[in-house]
């Protein structure tokens, strides 16, 4: 053995930033996560040149998957041009040479914080969701070791009790985003802080979703064609945000998840949260020919989703 066999030729930075060892770790754990849908897999999350909590989990997955032929889209709160999305997109392109896009239809890999695009993702697309807190049980059990044991035992009684208490107190489930959902009938997962509007998009989807929490060092997967069922009682159906009837003041489109913009006169205006979809809708209204993909919601309703 010589030093040369242990080392490699000097490079200013590894391709995709992560070194081989980091990538292999993420790969191994991604495969295990596919095999046990919704189960949080611990992984040796590395530091990356971005602060923890700013998408370092998603970043490690993207850095592992990317190659110069994969087109990447990055969104934050639905927007491609928010500062954090711009920063991550620039980093990914810089370290991998991957081409970028804002159009959901053109993307091979979509890294997102807090939203799933409105256009239906295809079988060949991969969605990477950034996860701040991977543990759905944390509100009822902050200790990670105990929570893990509860998952092992499928001991979800306290989770149900919490939802029940909310219904008794407030007349409804008060969970906003991050709605806890049962994956493949076995593990409760948090779908990351996506709105309730987006959770049904994971159910029996054509695409692969990888959820990764860098700070908490856990990743989990929703494979294609996998059941993702929000926790609900038989007599209290799951309800997405009441956005189905709202109209985007900028594009005139109706029936999608909206940003609420407070107005000086005390009222609210709305704009489509999925910025690329919003831009396409405006261009269409202005008479341009625009390619839209099919959307999960039609007329503000999702098929098979009682509201």
């Amino acid at each position: 053995m010589s030093l040369a066999t242990l080392t490699r030729a000097w490079e200013p930075m590894s391709y995709g930033f992560l070194d081989g060892s980091a990538k292999r770790e993420v790969r191994r754990k991604m495969l295990k996560a596919v095999a046990v849908p919704g189960c949080q897999m611990p992984y040796a999350s590395r530091e990356v040149p971005m602060a923890r909590g700013w998408g370092t989990g998603g970043l490690q997955v993207s850095c592992t998957l990317l190659n110069p032929k994969m087109r990447v889209k990055v969104i934050d709160q639905g927007a491609d041009d928010s500062v954090n999305a711009a920063s991550i997109r620039k980093f990914l392109a810089r370290v991998s040479g991957a081409p970028t896009t804002t159009d959901t239809l053109e993307a091979d890999l979509i890294q997102s914080r807090h939203r799933i695009p409105e256009e239906i993702l295809r079988e060949d697309q991969v969605l990477v969701l950034q996860v701040p807190n991977p543990e759905p049980l944390r509100p009822v059990q902050p200790n990670m070791s105990i929570a893990r044991q509860m998952h092992a035992d499928a001991d979800y009684g306290r989770m149900w009790l919490q939802l029940y208490e909310q219904i008794v107190r407030a007349g409804r489930v008060m969970q906003g985003a991050s709605y806890p959902s049962l994956v493949n009938g076995r593990f409760i997962m948090t779908p990351s802080p996506i709105p309730r509007w987006d959770v049904p998009k994971l159910h029996m989807a054509k695409h692969l979703t990888i959820l990764s929490a860098g700070r908490e060092k856990r990743l989990y997967v929703v494979p294609p064609y996998t059941r993702v069922e929000p926790l609900v009682f038989d007599d209290v159906p799951y309800r997405v945000e009441e956005h189905g009837g709202l109209t985007c003041t900028r594009s005139g489109a109706t029936g999608f998840f909206m940003n609420e913009i407070p107005q000086d006169d005390g009222s609210s205006a709305y704009e489509i949260s999925d910025s690329d979809f919003g831009v396409k809708s405006i261009r269409k209204r202005e008479g341009e020919e625009v390619a839209f993909g099919a959307t999960w919601y039609t007329g503000g309703e999702m098929e098979g989703q009682g509201r």
């Binding site: 200013p12 930075m13 391709y15 995709g16 190659n67 110069p68 810089r94 370290v95 991998s96 040479g97």
Partner: peptide, 8 residues
């Protein structure tokens, strides 16, 4: 410094 052209 930006990498000139990162190639795998």
């Amino acid at each position: 410094q930006p990498l000139a052209s990162p190639s795998p």
